[in-house]
Structures are given as structure tokens and as C-alpha cells.
């Protein structure tokens, strides 16, 4: 029994089909509970009710980065071990990651308006998210432009590797370019209590919810991609005979 067994499409379809309802249910429960709980928290003495957008903003921003990392790992698995499910999972993850990035940017703008008095600020964190969005767009555009599925998987895999390096590089270059207004990491471990427990626990719950939400969307989309590949293969077989 090894993890690579799930690289077999049939095995993947069977297992993912079995766990999908549970993941979806978990995502729904965690997200709804977390967001409701978050909405019922008291207002912050400085930020007022605007603080409540944190329960959307932080999980979305976190997932935006994590999804890219997941795509990087999946691309590496494809490039090294040639498991098709892995390549298709990376393809399936990209639009979800792009949407998470957009949610992070929009909620950030909505939050920034009352806090900083501007919808957009060329702050390092915001800017690096915008750059991340550009990388997501380029990655998806390349997938849709290449016709042969295996070539597309190879090219996007290489792009993902190079893009990761440059996304990281841009992130630090941007700090050099402009010191920002953005508050530091809200949940930083080493710098002690930044955020009171009243906000922290619902935030953990929404983060878990967004993680499960991503997982359920990823499974659904990967299953769709596998079925699409299967369908194309069947059609090609029919044309031959």
C-alpha cells in the first residue's frame, strides 16, 4: 500500500468518489459555522465591525498561496513520476487558486477602504498578491493554449517551477520597493498574542472550512478532468474503428 496507488485513475476515482460527500459536508459545516460565529463576534475597539471581514480575507489569502504550493508539488510529481492524475490535479487547482486570490484582493480592498482610506494601496502584500494573480492567469492561459494534453502538462509544469521562483523573488523585491501599510501576520506564532481568542477560534474554523472547500472543489474538478480525458480517448477509439 503506497500513496502512489492513487495515481491510478480508477483507484483515484473510486476513493475520491467515496470521500467526496464527507469532504463537502465538512467544508459546508466548517465554513458556515465559522462565518456565522465570526459574524457574531464583538466589534473591535479600533476597527469596529470592519474587522469581521477577516474571516473571509485571511482564509482566502492563505489558500491562494497554499494552492500555488500544491500546484508546484503536483507539477513536480508529474514531471518526475509522470502520474497523469497529478498533472490534472494541478490543472484543476489553478482556477480555484485564482478565485481565492481575487477574493483575497477584493476583501482586502473593502477592508482597506475604511481602514486606510483607499481602495488600493501599492503595499508589498497587496502587490505580491496581484503578482500571484498574474502568475495564475498565465498558468491557466498556457493550459488552454496547448492542445496536446501531455505537452500542456509538461509546459505548465515547467512554467509552474519557474513561476514559483519568480513569485517568491517578486515578493521580496516588492518589500525592497515599498514599505507597506499592511499589518503583519495576524496569527504569527512567535510574536505572541496578536489577536484575542474571541476572533482566533472562529478564524481557525473558517481556515479549516476554506481548506476543505478547496479540497472538495479540487476533487470535483480533478474528477471532471479525468472524465474529460477518458471521453476524448473513447471518441478517438471510436473514430479509429
Amino acid at each position: 500500500m503506497s500513496i502512489w496507488e492513487y495515481a491510478n485513475p480508477v483507484k483515484f476515482m473510486r476513493t475520491s468518489g467515496a470521500i467526496l460527500p464527507w469532504v463537502v459536508a465538512g467544508a459546508a459545516v466548517c465554513t458556515v459555522t465559522g462565518l456565522t460565529w465570526g459574524f457574531l463576534t464583538p466589534e473591535d475597539y479600533r476597527q469596529g465591525s470592519t474587522v469581521k471581514i477577516v474571516f473571509l480575507h485571511v482564509p482566502a489569502a492563505m489558500m491562494a498561496i497554499n494552492i500555488w504550493v500544491m500546484m508546484l508539488v503536483a507539477s513536480l510529481i508529474w514531471l518526475i513520476r509522470r502520474h497523469h492524475v497529478s498533472a490534472l490535479a494541478a490543472k484543476a487547482a489553478a482556477p480555484i487558486g485564482a478565485v481565492m486570490t481575487v477574493i483575497g484582493l477584493i476583501t482586502g480592498a473593502v477592508w482597506g477602504q475604511p481602514m486606510w482610506g483607499t481602495w488600493w494601496e501599492w503595499d508589498p502584500r497587496l502587490t505580491s498578491f496581484l503578482i500571484l494573480l498574474l502568475f495564475y492567469i498565465g498558468y491557466m492561459a498556457l493550459w488552454s493554449a496547448v492542445e496536446d494534453p501531455d505537452s500542456a502538462a509538461d509546459l505548465t509544469g515547467v512554467l509552474c517551477l519557474v513561476g514559483s521562483v519568480f513569485a517568491l523573488l517578486s515578493r521580496y523585491a516588492v518589500f525592497f520597493w515599498n514599505q507597506g501599510l499592511h499589518q503583519g501576520a495576524s496569527l504569527s506564532v512567535q510574536s505572541g498574542e496578536r489577536m484575542s481568542a474571541v476572533y482566533r477560534y472562529p478564524l481557525y474554523l473558517t481556515m479549516l472550512g476554506f481548506g476543505l472547500l478547496f479540497l472538495s472543489l479540487l476533487l470535483i474538478r480533478t474528477r471532471t478532468e479525468i472524465r474529460k480525458r477518458r471521453l476524448a480517448a473513447l471518441q478517438a477509439r471510436e473514430m479509429r474503428t
Partner: peptide, 17 residues
């Protein structure tokens, strides 16, 4: 000429099905 049942498995993706 590749047989009809093997045309559809280019590089090991579909034989699993």
C-alpha cells in the same frame, strides 16, 4: 497499424480503465 483497443492508451493513462 495500432489496434483499436490500444490506440486509446497513448502513455499509460487509460489502460487503468
Amino acid at each position: 497499424r495500432a489496434r483499436a483497443d490500444s490506440t486509446a492508451r497513448p502513455a499509460g493513462f487509460n489502460e487503468a480503465f
